[in-house]
Design a protein around this nucleic acid. Structure first.
Lengths: 261, 261
DNA sequence: TTGCGTGGAA
DNA sequence: TTCCACGCAA
């Protein structure tokens, strides 16, 4: 049995916006830790890992682990029916194959309730090794989104080159080429959490599909900040904080060899 | 001979937006009372009744009754050529088979004139009995629009259940089900005219096509408030005030039996 | 609130 | 292929 009440319901709306274009359906795993989801995208190229910790909810009750097979498309549609300041409550029981979703406006003068049919979804629980990465970059999420979007005009791939001094994004294609370089310590609006911070063990140089990175930046609304964890031989991790305590992480393997593709 | 000058020309623009998706062509009846229109929608399912009282215009002159067969699609296109604060004048004579439409900007520095060809349209003047309804609900038009749009994600039909305490809209379909309940007296923004007010003679429970209701809410821009008149056995009436003195009313029969459709 | 661009239907 | 309607952005 799950009961989880989220004061700021809009967070879940944003989470679904950040998932639904990549993944049509997935299992939400509920246990005492909170809600989590791990799934490959529809094309089985990228991996998405979501965690919303129990502490994000109040109350949060989940006495037994539950795996809820959810059509993210449908859940997203239902969440769009909530108002911008609604309180959201999720309920599920072991017996019933629906997820109950409730939105309450102020003073509960307006209450909307929905039941989403659950599905059986094969889950392929990929363990993600908790690795040390060659480089960790903390930067303004809007700026990262802008860079990916801008470079996608030029080509299909972006090459990320990162040293202690700076991170450089570059792309090239038929119409030309472009590169955007941000120095360690660069600030935006003088907000210090938006400072670009680069931690380097080993410099990296790797190439990724821009289409996927642009897709990952659908999560930009969730956090002002994005964290990039990069190694030469491992998938890049693009992480956004969710609701202070949780996260959504996207994993994408670098392109190898043939950099024209 | 008709001559009618509307200070706030944008009202007629909105009226046409509220009509044109439902009805392609109809007769505008002009007499000393004002302008009125009654027509079934293209699919002959819903009935629309429009009245703009003579007092809405200044001046309003109509010495003899006229029935103007108008392509609402075309009239809407012409009205889109007016500016947001233009004064609008309609003129028609008994002899000429065109409607003359004039837009004047402030100080008449800009005058646009159009002539719309009139058409012969068979009119089927359905008398609408002035009935007492089981339930009358007054609510925020934007909220009603939102509810209809939201529920249309789930299914084709909405069931409206209304008692003294509250009005409940519910729908269900392949992806699940949902219900939105608003209590008598619920307020929006503390504006008192937007308070949900429910007057009940007999509680009602009836089901309607969401596609049509969503279409009716095209009139939302005309008024902050919508009035629903509902009876178990009669078509629902969805009414928006037009220009203080007039109205646009939509009539839609409930679905009967087969509630799966 | 209006205009633009995209997606769906005829 | 064209037109219309809807959703998103300015």
């Amino acid at each position: 049995m799950l009961e989880a009440r989220l004061q700021d319901g809009v967070v879940l709306k944003k989470v679904l916006d950040a998932l639904k274009d990549l993944i049509n359906e997935a299992n939400f795993d509920c246990n005492e830790t909170g809600l989590s989801l791990q799934a490959m995208d529809n094309a089985h190229v990228a991996l998405v890992s979501l965690l919303i910790k129990a502490e994000s909810f109040d109350p949060f009750r989940c006495d037994r682990s539950l795996s809820l097979g959810i059509s993210l498309t449908s859940l997203s549609k239902i969440l769009k029916c909530s108002g911008p300041s609604d309180v959201l409550t999720l309920k599920a029981s072991d017996q019933i194959d629906t997820l109950h979703i409730m939105f309450e406006g102020k003073d509960s003068e307006r209450v909307s309730e929905f039941d989403l049919k659950l599905m059986d979804i094969d889950s392929e629980h990929l363990g993600i090794p908790d690795t040390e990465y060659d480089v960790c970059v903390n930067m303004c999420s809007l700026e990262f989104q802008r860079i990916c979007r801008d470079l996608s005009v030029l080509g299909e791939s972006v090459t990320i080159e990162c040293s202690k001094e700076s991170i450089k994004f570059s792309a090239n294609g038929d119409i030309g080429s472009g590169a955007i370089q941000i120095k360690q310590g660069a600030t935006i609006d003088e907000k210090k959490e938006l400072t670009t911070t680069i931690n380097v063990n080993t410099p990296v140089l790797a190439t990724y599909s821009l289409k996927y990175l642009v897709n990952f930046t659908k999560a930009t609304g969730l956090s002002d900040v994005v964290n990039l964890s990069i190694s030469n031989e491992l998938p890049i991790v693009v992480e956004y904080k969710v609701s202070e305590l949780g996260y959504i992480r996207y994993f994408l393997a670098p392109k190898i060899g043939d950099d024209e593709e």
